[in-house]
């Protein structure tokens, strides 16, 4: 399907999407107060210092909520229903929205690993997804 709303990277988000295309999850970290942040911004939303720096994130986190979507936002998603979307709290703190892959029944608190879909569209966007890790 061609008309899924793929991200169009801008000055704030380019670094993030470049990382995804290289299989690397990146977050911003404030040089002044140390806060990790997502979504990316031109400043730190915690202390308002300018120019947070990019770092590679662990890619590990836990499910803080999930839903299975039965009614899609547009025909572009119709072939996928029902599909599962989760909010993941990354080890570094920030929250990320992802598609849940792998078919396991999600529960809040489940540990996940973030991976990436194959790059798509003119900007080569690799959307992050999450796979639930087996309990040890």
């Amino acid at each position: 399907m061609t008309d899924k709303p793929l991200p169009v990277p801008n000055a704030d988000t380019k670094e993030f999407w470049e990382g995804c295309a290289q299989g690397e999850l990146r977050l911003q970290r404030c040089r002044a107060c140390g806060a990790a942040q997502f979504p990316p911004r031109a400043l730190c939303a915690t202390c308002h210092a300018s120019s947070p720096v990019w770092e590679r994130a662990s890619g590990r986190g836990r499910i803080v909520s999930h839903t299975r979507v039965h009614r899609p936002p547009s025909p572009a998603f119709k072939a996928d229903v029902p599909y599962s979307v989760a909010l993941v709290a990354l080890e570094e703190g920030p929250r990320l929205m992802v598609t849940l892959r792998g078919g396991a029944e999600p529960r809040i608190g489940d540990a996940v690993r973030v991976g990436f879909d194959p790059p798509a569209g003119p900007d080569g966007i690799a959307l992050p997804h999450a796979i639930i890790l087996e309990a040890p």
């Binding site: 991200p7 169009v8 990277p9 979507v69 979307v85 909010l87 929205m97 992802v98 598609t99």
Partner: peptide, 25 residues
């Protein structure tokens, strides 16, 4: 969010579904 939510196919009910799941838990 155009870059960090909509690409995953979320509707307003899906976003409230995420809130509901967390709140019920």
């Amino acid at each position: 969010h155009p870059q960090f939510e909509r690409p995953f196919g979320v509707t307003i009910p899906a976003l409230y579904g995420l809130v509901a799941q967390a709140y019920m838990h």
